[in-house]
Design a protein around this nucleic acid. Structure first.
Length: 429
RNA sequence: GGCGAGGUAGCGAAGCGGUCAAACGCAGCAGACUGUAAAUCUGUCGCCCUAGCGGCUUCGAAGGUUCGAGUCCUUCCCUCGCCA
């Protein structure tokens, strides 16, 4: 299968310029995607672009990831209904330091024919002088053209309007494409569907300045069947940085994927081939409760982002945490169960509590829940009373209940469950 | 600068001077049902406790009127619209 057909099969082609398939077929294409340094870590909303760049490289094309140190100074109005808060230069630089290695992780810099590049557009954008920019870049665009862009137009109609700063953003991103075209022969820009306007502006600029044809390809917005925003959970954004989103939690996110989404995600985010994905598709349809596709998705994506070692650790930690740990009173079993829970404590949400607190009359369940889960006592009490809390697989619905050392598994560890999918290990010290 | 509208819990949006911790919707959380899925139904959704017709802090900010203010008055701040 050629690259264009593969991208199409995977559902990654939301829109593309005419002739892109021929361009792929005609030889090595240099392509880029820009990433905004809005935070010190990328999140899974950026993942589709990263994986797509990697896919491109596998087919022998040359990927460039732009870390948007320059455009980040301005703020892309695309997909935003409100003016953005400007980041300080210090913040941007700190964020760039965080995301650069993440970008690099997905790409191969050592391929002799098509090495990857990570570049910072501040390298050229920051050094433009205003008059020069207006003459060299601004002159190529009519305001009429810019006003027609969806990102601008929507904001014109909104009550908040759009600042001159963000209005200018389009020119900067167009300039990026031109710059990469000139420096590296880059002829393709990719991005999410909200980037189409920015991308076509760059294509226009290259056509006007060099009379050359450049291409654009945008991927669809990743959606969830339930209508929730992709990449967000009750806990917030799913980050690629393990210090922000622990590997175990990252893996859980993928494991909890809706049946209706899982095949699409496998196509988007993994390198599995068509036959394998078709097999999984059949499994989802035939035996959805086995969650085979979700398992594979979780394993593949976690391995891709965090490496095989951490992915395996997360998998085994979750196996213990969610395993059918029938908590018996058998002393030998208790000891081994306690051992296995303590062994995974570092990889899962866990809290250490001074064991002495459990002596005598012990600690109230509400206090334990509030402390371990990190909610107010009112909320902890509510959780308990609504039957949402169990300790060592025993539901505790009495808000006045207390936990003592004797309640602990082998007198040294508790397994606390909140609702159906949140579990915490409590170590007595 | 002038005129007008408005600022209420994460968001949206009600709210005759008393029974307003504040209707309702969304999001969230929990329960039932399940498959660590979805849908549906139910409950819940400021904080604290000795858990009660309990206490405390909230309705842009500060003052004031009143036995009592989200609701009235004054000043200030902010947002939006129209006009200059």
């Amino acid at each position: 299968m050629n690259l264009y057909d593969e991208l199409t099969w995977r559902g990654l082609v939301y829109d593309a310029t005419d002739g892109l398939a021929d361009a792929f077929a005609g030889g090595r294409v240099t392509a880029y995607i820009g990433f905004d340094p809005t935070a010190s870590s990328l999140h899974i909303g950026n993942l589709l672009g990263l994986v797509t760049l990697a896919r491109l490289q596998q087919y022998g094309h040359a990927p460039i990831a732009i870390a948007g140190g320059g455009t980040g100074m301005i703020g892309d109005p695309s997909g935003k209904s409100q003016e953005r808060t400007l980041l300080t230069l210090d913040q941007i630089n700190a964020n760039l330091d965080g995301i650069r290695p993440q970008l690099a992780q997905f790409l191969d810099f050592n391929r002799p024919d098509n090495p990857a590049r990570v570049v910072n557009n501040a390298d050229w954008l920051a050094s433009f002088d205003l008059l020069g920019f207006l003459r060299d870049t601004g002159k190529y665009f009519t305001v009429n053209y810019m006003l027609q862009k969806e990102s601008v137009n929507r904001r014109l109609e909104s009550a908040d309007g759009i600042s001159y700063t963000e209005f200018s953003y389009l020119l900067l991103q167009a300039r990026d494409f031109l710059e990469l075209f000139e420096r590296y022969g880059c002829t393709l820009q990719m991005g999410g569907s909200d980037q189409w306007g920015n991308i076509t502006a760059g294509i226009e600029l290259i056509r006007k300045v060099h009379a050359k044809k450049a291409h654009g390809l945008v991927t669809p917005l990743v959606t969830t069947a339930s209508g929730a925003k992709f990449g967000k959970t009750e806990a917030g954004t799913i980050w690629l940085d393990a210090s922000r989103t622990p590997v175990q939690e990252f893996r859980q996110f993928w494991l909890n994927t809706d049946d209706r989404d899982v095949i699409a995600y496998l196509k988007f985010f993994t390198f599995l081939e068509r036959a394998d994905i078709d097999d999984l598709d059949a499994l989802v349809k035939g035996a959805p409760e086995k969650r085979n596709a979700q398992q594979v998705l979780a394993d593949r994506v976690t391995t891709l982002v965090h490496g095989a070692e951490d992915a395996t650790r997360a998998e085994s930690a979750n196996a213990v945490l969610f395993g059918a740990s029938t908590l018996t009173d058998d002393v030998a079993d208790a000891a081994s169960l306690a051992d296995s829970l303590l062994a995974i404590a570092e990889d899962v949400p866990s809290t250490a509590i001074d064991g002495a607190a459990f002596d005598g009359s012990g600690i109230s369940i509400v206090d334990v829940v509030a402390r371990v889960i990190g909610v107010s006592k009112s909320e902890a009490r509510r959780l308990v009373q609504q039957g949402g809390v169990s300790v060592n697989d025993r539901k505790i619905a009495d808000a006045n209940a207390r936990l003592t050392r004797a309640d602990a598994i082998d007198r040294r560890v508790f397994l606390l469950k909140k609702g159906g999918r949140q579990r915490f290990v409590i170590r007595l010290t």
